[in-house]
């Protein structure tokens, strides 16, 4: 079963990560969900696939009241991101879901109706969480062609979706990156193959390097913090992407 861990708290402003499911079947990729709470209301980022819904829901219930989730945020359209949507809507049919506008016609195949989706324009937009301003920021083509990150300037945390994702071995349960070089080895192949646009990557690195970030939280693998955030941005900036290994 997954568990919720608090990674940031300042009064009623809390970031929790729902991470690491030791009972997850091998054929499913492990995912991190983030529950951002402010004054009793929460937004859940990339709620995950339909198979892991019971685990995510139970983990959230242990730490917070799921009735206080006021919105979902889907960084892009992949099934490991949002295929649990129909189950979340069974729980609360009025739950809105922020999605990149590009996928507003595709994600409904997982569930929802015309009132469910709040399309986010390419340039991103502010998202109000009960008085706390979060910002959806563009990360298109990294990897999805319509892709967004979520930045919390107050907590100085960037939810980076698939950027920074490392497919760590099952026995590697580190929550935060302990050894950058070790983790990045597990991230390299994924970033080379899945991140498709060199100009988009350059643009993202340029913009994100200017943000004040204490933690960079990917949807898979360990969280980067402190100096490792900038190390990652530099590493990514120099990485040749959109290439396949031959042979």
């Amino acid at each position: 079963m997954k568990r919720a861990f608090t990674i940031y708290q300042n009064g009623e402003h809390i970031w929790r990560v729902i991470a690491r499911d030791p009972e997850r079947p091998d054929f499913l990729i492990d995912t991190n969900e983030y529950l951002i709470s402010y004054k009793e209301k929460s937004i859940l980022t990339d709620p995950g696939g339909i198979e892991i819904f019971p685990s995510v829901f139970a983990a959230i219930s242990a730490a917070a009241n799921p009735e206080n989730i006021s919105a979902l945020f889907a960084s892009h359209q992949d099934p490991d991101i949002i295929s649990s949507l129909s189950l979340w809507l069974e729980f609360n049919p009025d739950l809105p879901c922020y999605v990149p506008w590009l996928w507003a016609g595709f994600i409904p195949h997982f569930g929802g109706n015309k009132n469910t989706f709040i399309p986010i324009p390419d340039e991103g937009m502010p998202i109000n969480l009960n008085g706390l301003e979060l910002r959806a920021i563009p990360a298109h083509y990294l990897h999805s062609s319509g892709n967004l990150n979520l930045y919390d300037a107050t907590a100085k945390i960037l939810f980076s979706g698939d950027i920074g994702a490392a497919l760590l071995p099952a026995d590697d349960t580190q929550m935060f990156v302990q050894d950058f070089d070790k983790v990045i080895k597990h991230a390299e192949g994924f970033h080379r193959r899945w991140m498709g646009s060199e100009p988009a990557k350059r643009d993202w690195c340029e913009r994100v390097s200017k943000l004040d970030i204490d933690m960079m939280c990917p949807q898979h693998g360990a969280i980067f913090q402190g100096a490792d955030v900038q190390r990652f941005i530099h590493w990514f900036d120099e990485l040749k992407i959109g290439v396949m290994k031959k042979g």
């Binding site: 219930s61 009241n65 799921p66 009735e67 189950l87 069974e90 729980f91």
Partner: peptide
């Protein structure tokens, strides 16, 4: 009330 809500 649906069952998930009931559990919550």
């Amino acid at each position: 009330m649906n069952d998930l809500m009931r559990i919550v």
